[in-house]
Amino acid sequence: MSTSVRRIKGCLKKVCIGSNWRHTVVRAVVLSALAYGVCTTIFLPVRIQGDSMLPLYETGDYGFINTLAYRWSNPRRFDIVGIRMAGNSVMYLKRIIGLPGETVEIHDGTVHVNGKALSEPHLQFKSDWELGKQSLSGDQYFVIGDNRGMSIHYHTFGKVKRHRIVGRAWLLKIPSL
C-alpha cells in the first residue's frame, strides 16, 4: 500500500472514529442520550399539518415547542403556543389573542378585547367572521389561528385552559424538506 493511500486511510479513520474509538463511542452515546432527552422533554419537535396558521406555518413545516418558555412566566398575547390534547404527540398550534379575565369578541373579522379593537399586524388573511362575547376565567386564554380567510366553521379556536398550553413555538419556521 502506498504512503499516500495509507495517509488518506489514516485521516479518514481519525475523522470517522477519532484518535481513541472508546472515547468516540462514549461521546456518541452521551450526545445521543442528551439529544433524546432534550427533544422529548424541553424542545419538542413538531411537524405542521393543516392550514389554520397560514401563512406563517404550512403543512410540512417543522419547528419546536419550547416547554420551558412558561416555566417562570405566563403566556403573552400573540404568542404562538402548542396546545395538547390527551398528550403531546398531537397538538394544536394557535396564537393567543385573549388573556385571563378579558372578554373577546369578533365583529366583521376584527377581534375586540374588552370592547376595544385589537391591532393584529401579523394578520394577512381575514374575512367577515362574527363571534359573540367570550369571557375568560382566571385560567383561560383565547387562542385562534392566523388563517382567518377560511370559513369560521372549519377553524378550531376558542377558550383553552392554562394547563393545556405546552409551550411556545420556537425557531419560527424550518422550511419543509
Partner: peptide, 8 residues
C-alpha cells in the same frame, strides 16, 4: 369527545 377549545 373532549372539547379542548371551547366557545360560549
Amino acid at each position: 369527545f373532549v372539547k379542548v377549545m371551547e366557545l360560549q
